[in-house]
Amino acid sequence: MREQKVYADWLDAGTHIGFVILLVTFCVYASGLAAPQIPLADLPKYWGLPIDRYLAATGAPVGWGWVAYAARGDYMNFIGIAFLGTITVACYLRLVVVLAVQRDWLYTAVAVIELAILATSASGFISRGH
């Protein structure tokens, strides 16, 4: 099936790129090449706190707020993490096109609804509340 092959190709490429980004940004972070927002030695004071108290104590951003700190060593890692979180979205975007070309409207609809759910989750809209 064509859609399965296309999905596999996109998933393969995306996963490889994602892991490279994840490793490179972590090396930059751990080596100290880019200064972190929260010093590494201070992290043990915070990582045992529940999320609400952690955010209050560190002033860590929520939602897509990390983008503003992406030059910082720790938040640079979110580029790779967010990339891993968008691979499926990219695969589904491509899948919608393939299925629509095949005029498989039932599965096109399933893919579009899934995309809407993933996009809503990624947007941060339903995570607000802190």
């Binding site: 999320i51 929520v62 979110f78 993490i81 941060g124 802190h130």
Partner: peptide, 12 residues
């Protein structure tokens, strides 16, 4: 994405 957007991710 819920965990990322809630700030519940520590890269270390």
């Amino acid at each position: 994405w819920i965990y990322i957007n809630k700030g519940a991710i520590i890269p270390l």
